[in-house]
Amino acid sequence: MAPLLEVKDLVKYFPTYSRGIFRKKIVGNVHAVDGISFSVNESEIVGLVGESGCGKTTTGKLILYLERPTKGEILFDGKNAIEIFENGSKEEKMELRRSMQMVFQNPYASLDPRMTVFDIISEPFKIHKHVPRNEWKERVYKLLELVGLEPYHAERYPHEFSGGQRQRICIARAIAVEPRFIIADEPVSSLDVSIRAQILKLIMDLQHRLGVSYLYISHDLSSVRQISQRVMVMYLGEIVEAAPTDELFDHSIHPYTRALISAVPIPDPKRKMNIILLPGEVPSAINPPSGCRFHPRCRYATSECKEEKPSFVEVDKDHYVSCHHYAEFA
């Protein structure tokens, strides 16, 4: 079966300008996303993890054409999405927009404070006209129920809700257009620990009930393990490792993935942490390191790593890694 979403060699450079009031000169490029390829299957949750600045969010925005890709190809359901967003007819664009939605990180900023919950959730009906006016009320109530809220919540304003409830409203708005694919960008990181599990459950629940696929973007590896079927690890604009979830967490190969996993504190006092401390910090994406981008922080780095870019090879079934020395670590 063909995947629902296919991303090929996606690139996004943000130009940086020299200082000056009158003349703007491009002096460099931030290599936010640099040639990534992956796919998402029908009703699958794919996790995208990485540290801040690695290009996770940009990847999400590129897929939805909220940012214009510099290069690359995005196929949604076999159709060329970039082509449609750039040159397609209005109908084609609307149809594509309906099938892909986004849930943002901060539910305190992504809901209009002057709209009631009813207006927020029914706004997509107004735009896409896929629900006749006399059915709006019923539909909104049904959506509220689906995300675990009550019908009487419809008349309220966002400020009357807690963070977890607001995120439920955001999810209700996203599924109001019956999308097939949702990009969830850190949907639980601004919520309290006791609330996070509720939202994670809701996301998984909707995957089963509605068959929605997700790209779950997060820096929290524990929640990624909980929720995803496949995981991709990003570092400085590139995917360094990708594998089915258990395979990735139990048999990681790339030194960066290993360090990342080792650094996550585990709530069990009996377990001794064996942290691989990475020296230094993530380098600037304006002039990324040559060869393997991780080499300045990698303890196994050789001269080959400095000079040559490793290719993304399949080392096991569905397990891809981009490292010159993968054979030694596998």
Binding site: A197, Q198, S222
Partner: peptide
């Protein structure tokens, strides 16, 4: 709380805490 937080070293059924703070 311990049952509601995902753990990296295992996959388990999350038991969430109902309600709000």
């Amino acid at each position: 709380l311990l049952k509601a937080i995902p753990r990296l070293d295992q996959t388990k059924e999350l038991v969430f805490i109902p309600g709000n703070i």
